[in-house]
Design a protein around this nucleic acid. Sequence first.
DNA 1: AACCGCCTCCCCCGCACGGGGGAAACACGC
DNA 2: GCGTGTTTCCCCCGTGCGGGGGAGGCGGTT
Lengths: 226, 226
Amino acid sequence: MIRVLLADDETMIRAGVRAILAADPGIEVVAEAGDGREAVDLMLAHRPDVVLLDIRMPRLDGLAAVAELRRTAPETGVLMLTTFGEDEYIARALGEGASGFLLKSGDPRELLAGIRAVAEGAAYLSPRVAHRVITELTGGRMTRAAAARDQVSALTPRERDVLVLVGAGLSNAQIARRLSLVEGTVKAHVSAILTRLDARNRVQAAILAYEAGLLDAAAGERTRRP
Amino acid sequence: MIRVLLADDETMIRAGVRAILAADPGIEVVAEAGDGREAVDLMLAHRPDVVLLDIRMPRLDGLAAVAELRRTAPETGVLMLTTFGEDEYIARALGEGASGFLLKSGDPRELLAGIRAVAEGAAYLSPRVAHRVITELTGGRMTRAAAARDQVSALTPRERDVLVLVGAGLSNAQIARRLSLVEGTVKAHVSAILTRLDARNRVQAAILAYEAGLLDAAAGERTRRP
DNA sequence: AACCGCCTCCCCCGCACGGGGGAAACACGC
DNA sequence: GCGTGTTTCCCCCGTGCGGGGGAGGCGGTT
């Protein structure tokens, strides 16, 4: 039995969702909230498996509510309810820890499928916007990343080693120490890197490295001032 | 009736999946492929609703196969089959147009839920890695971005202007020209930026600007060498 | 009025950076 | 063997970068 908390400020929506869920014997609506604050409180009281959360709500909006729900009850799945056109919130909601989103205009079966998927721990993205959201999430990063990766792949392995350290903000001398080289060698590598990447200076090379994803692993390399 | 094409180079996996799917009367396996090339051919011949695609395959691997499947039949849903630990391919597969992925080690019900979701056009991410993938896609950008945004928000408006140009790889002189300032002024701003952001040099400042999303709008600013 | 933060500009200085060469060592393939 | 590419090191030189200091004007708050 999947226990569901329903949070939406519009009574009609709540009634509609409740009616749809009532038809499924495996799903039970344990509580309803009219705003984000109430949703958090009721979740603590009822400990549902899934929270259905409207994005626009008074007091505490859906985005902030997700963040708080994830903090207080990480094991609970959060499914955002959204109107077509609120796309820009979706990426942020997913970033805050939501496990999926549904369109209010969608087929009732999507609602049931989404709830079941999220209850199991999976992520579910509503049909009509799934592809758009994925390409937005991956795309913005990926298409540019692909171009950057092409350029970076033209480098020799050793040059890539140097590049990640350049991207970490290290000086040539520091890179030399790190790689057990003489500074002159590092300078030679850096020059080669700039030429090959068609970059004017190390900053542009660093950004390219960042776009190519070279720095994800070396994020901790960045040494701040003491 | 959901028509499924099954592509995996391991016979045992195919047998297992076929057995699981046979138990569901609403799902029919219309063809099986042993590699990516065959998968593309069979898809053209059978026009299934969903393609189950292994990531590692001979001839044409899963990644390339997704791209080609999406090109030749955009309306077909592609569901990646993956072994735990192949995470790095997942983001790229989603970027290529896959609608979801499943762990081979997962519960059979996930397989059925995933297929149904994808057949409807939704996106489905397997439980054990869904959160990780989402935070990787959004998070790599978002969580680190949040920290970076905090630091960047501590800057004055004018300093942010300078920072975006620093992040674009411009020299102090170029920035001065762009903002109609004297180079000395730009240097003063850059010094202030480095102090406030707790960065050692302009490269680290640039990366922070990039993480904060300051450079997304100004991506074209980056001027390459002629 | 006095204060504080921001923006602008100025000085000097030391060093790191980036481009120009070249050269020796090694590994690779044809 | 000979060419090609990679890695390592060397030279010189100009200039961009980053830290130190200060100073004047302008818009706020107290």
